[in-house]
Amino acid sequence: MAGIITLFYFTLGTVVFTQKIKLFAIVSSFILYVALHIAAANALLTGLLVACLLITFVILLSLNCNRDKKAVLHFSLPCWLLIVSVIYDVFVNQPIPAY
């Protein structure tokens, strides 16, 4: 599922914002894949990450600014989602130690 979402994110962002395949878009898609792979254990977190992606995409479509600025904002979002996924995995997804 993470791969499908990532591929859809990459193609939609490339077609709508950059119209070229750029290195930062490829790296951003890989980062999104890692974030979704980490969050795959929790369905609620995965849903929140996908909802955040969709909401950001809709907001960026309605903004009146340069297409390159929209592309940078669109493809920088997975970095923040990776940070959230790692923090969740480290602090919330910890097993309870048996004493």
Rank of each mutant, 00 (worst) to 15 (best):
N93M: 15
I26L: 10
L23V: 14
N64Q: 00
S29N: 00
Q19S: 10
Y99E: 03
A41R: 15
L49P: 01
A25M: 08
A35W: 04
D89C: 13
T56E: 05
V15S: 11
V16F: 07
Y33L: 07
A51T: 09
V34Y: 11
P95Q: 15
T46V: 01
N64L: 00
D68V: 12
T18L: 11
L77E: 04
I5C: 09
Q19H: 10
I96H: 13
L73H: 04
K20Y: 14
A25F: 02
I31R: 05
F57S: 12
L32V: 01
H74Y: 15
H74W: 11
L63C: 02
H37E: 13
C79G: 11
Y33D: 00
F8V: 14
L81D: 01
S85F: 04
N64V: 00
P78V: 05
G13R: 01
T6Y: 03
I4N: 08
N93E: 14
V16R: 03
A51N: 06
L7K: 04
W80N: 04
G47Q: 01
L48Q: 09
T14D: 02
K22C: 08
L12N: 03
T18W: 05
R67C: 07
N93R: 15
I21M: 13
L82C: 05
Y88Q: 14
A35R: 05
W80G: 12
L61F: 11
Q19D: 10
V86N: 05
L60W: 04
A71D: 09
C52H: 03
A40F: 01
Q94W: 14
D89F: 14
A40E: 03
L81R: 01
F8Y: 13
W80K: 05
A2E: 02
L36C: 09
L77G: 03
Y88I: 08
F24D: 13
F57N: 10
S76I: 10
K70D: 06
V50L: 08
N42S: 12
G13A: 02
L44K: 13
T56M: 02
A2D: 03
V92F: 15
H74I: 02
Y88V: 13
N42G: 03
Q94R: 15
V58H: 05
Y88R: 12
L54H: 04
G3R: 05
N93W: 15
C79W: 12
